[in-house]
Design a protein around this nucleic acid. Structure first.
Lengths: 218, 218
DNA sequence: CGTAGCTAGGACCTGATAGTCCAGATCAAG
DNA sequence: CTTGATCTGGACTATCAGGTCCTAGCTACG
């Protein structure tokens, strides 16, 4: 098994600007469609049509649907991490966490809670059917949690958080509350459960503050 | 539109024991297969084979795949609620909540975190594609949360929980932690995130106890 | 310019899957 | 035991979705 793919290591296919643009259009369309319909319910023809491309282009840029889905996992993961980096990499206080929470809630409320988290829903759909996708998603979640726990570490180092706070566990708990909140909000078509869940997690973190925050949570 | 289904309201189809058994076998097989592979990735032929039935029986007992899935939502919802009633309807103390947590964690650890929650994964897969299934799932979640909040109400009435505790919100937060925990555990193939998430939610509830529990959490 | 190879269009193929149909077995009520 | 309905087996069909292929444009580079 595995007889070919080791050959010609240096030979990289030439790729034109147009090719890059097409590949991008395909990924973008897949991203949009699979976000609202789910991965399995989206067909290649849907994507072809939405991206204004053709079958041969799909198969020129991606070996098969599974590869496209894996590329999408990477693509969406990068998008989310980039967005989250913006909101979290300078996190140094509890109020920063509250702002972060508010941004997520507001974004989700625009859809009335529908669709959930782009990563979370892929994780549910793919974990039991594509090991490689599952492991990429798991790593993305870990990186996301790390953005949070890094912020909590900064807060602990600066004395805002007590020494006995465990940033990693707090970050995992917060991420679980976020994902569970997304899920319940999606089922209910209502953001409220997501708000309640995030507030619970934030309250829990608040209990590790060295001194109570100056302003109420909202 | 809708010209037929109103006719003959009293005429209920006769149904034999054998018919009931067959219908049960189909639902059971669908339940098992769709739990591990997901709803969309499971075919009717898979179910036919696993349930030792035939195509005509599938379509005799269910109008189409969508109806079968909806019946499964109901079936699985009833199973979960029955199981949860056992663990929650006599909940009166924090330690009872800890026992409940332990049972869920233990069950999930048998699969190394795989597959997640039977209801949660269906919610993710179906919410964006079958409104009726979504609403049934949402109601099931609400009923499940009510089992929890009823227990918390009992704790509050007995003085174990402070008066300012909000049982409904605490139950929603706990459910979100549970669902998010399932999701992350499934993605990681490891129960740990689920444990951390539930412990966070339990800690949060613990902060509303009138007096600290006699024993450590575990 | 010329040409090699990337890029594109879209018809076509193939397998899988949801759904149909009908003949025959089984059951329950009288 | 008769009769009419339910239940069952499994072959059959239609459709759809993934995947292939061949021809024709474009682009980059010499």
């Amino acid at each position: 098994m595995g007889d070919e793919q080791v050959a010609a290591p240096t030979k990289q296919r030439r790729i034109s600007q147009r090719g890059i643009a097409t590949r991008g259009r395909i990924l973008e369309a897949a991203n949009r469609l699979m976000f609202v319909r789910g991965v399995n319910a989206t067909t290649l023809d849907d994507i072809r049509e939405a991206s204004q491309t053709s079958k041969s282009q799909l198969y020129h840029h991606f070996a098969d649907k599974q590869e496209l889905v894996r590329a999408l996992v990477k693509y969406r993961g990068a998008l989310v991490l980039q967005r989250e980096r913006g909101g979290l990499e300078r996190l140094r206080s509890f109020s920063g966490l509250v702002r972060w929470r508010n941004a997520l809630v507001q974004a989700n409320s625009l859809n009335n809670g529908k669709y959930g988290c782009g990563l979370g829903s892929m994780a549910v759909e793919l974990s039991d059917q594509d090991e490689q996708a599952r492991s990429m998603l798991s790593e993305t979640f870990a990186a996301w949690e790390k953005l949070i726990s890094d912020g909590l570490h900064r807060m602990r180092d600066s004395g805002a958080l007590r020494q006995d706070a465990d940033p990693e566990k707090l970050a995992t708990g917060l991420m679980a509350a976020l994902q569970g909140g997304y899920l319940l909000a999606n089922a209910a078509h209502d953001v409220e459960p997501m708000e309640v869940a995030l507030d619970m997690a934030l309250d829990h973190i608040k209990s590790f503050l060295t001194e109570p925050p100056g302003d109420p949570t909202r």
